[in-house]
């Protein structure tokens, strides 16, 4: 597994996401309130592009007439069939035991350390002053 620089931290403000091409693999990088998460862009149900989905929250109910909306922005909903995945874990909401979107480890690294390697920064220009989002894939 190589570490890939996919963006400057400032390129993905909180609440947004970026579609990164990591060696031909499409990976979506999310910023949830300053914490970064990365999922394979391909929906494990039927292959839709998760990046093009809607980021939403969790609707739960403990019985007819009651509902609770929580975790706004932490669920990505596939633009095709509406399957929902937990941005933090990749776990599918409707079939959590069997289906999950592939998750990748993400870290934030200062530019000064990236210059030392062994990071792959093919498309993102790196300066020592900046902070960068690094995906392990």
């Amino acid at each position: 597994m190589a570490k890939h620089v996919v963006a400057a931290v400032s390129d993905i403000p909180p609440g947004t996401r970026k579609l990164a091409d990591v060696n031909g693999r499409a990976i979506v990088v999310f910023n949830l309130g300053g914490a970064f998460f990365a999922l394979n862009n391909r929906c494990p149900h039927r292959g839709g592009s998760l990046f093009h989905g809607r980021q939403t929250g969790l609707v739960e109910s403990d019985g007819p007439g009651n509902y609770c909306y929580s975790r706004p922005g932490e669920i990505i909903r596939c633009p095709w069939h509406g399957w929902e995945f937990d941005v933090r874990t990749g776990q599918s909401w409707c079939d959590p035991d069997r289906v999950r979107a592939r998750r990748y480890a993400v870290s934030v690294e200062p530019g000064a350390r990236l210059a030392e390697g062994p990071y792959v920064a093919e498309t993102v220009p790196v300066t020592v002053e900046g902070d960068y989002v690094v995906v392990e894939a």
């Binding site: 579609l19 091409d21 031909g24 693999r25 499409a26 862009n41 391909r42 292959g47 592009s49 990046f51």
Partner: peptide, 13 residues
């Protein structure tokens, strides 16, 4: 290994 078909990133015909 699954072919990525996202037209935004797809480079392989």
């Amino acid at each position: 290994n699954v072919a990525i078909k996202d037209p935004q990133t797809d480079k392989i015909a």
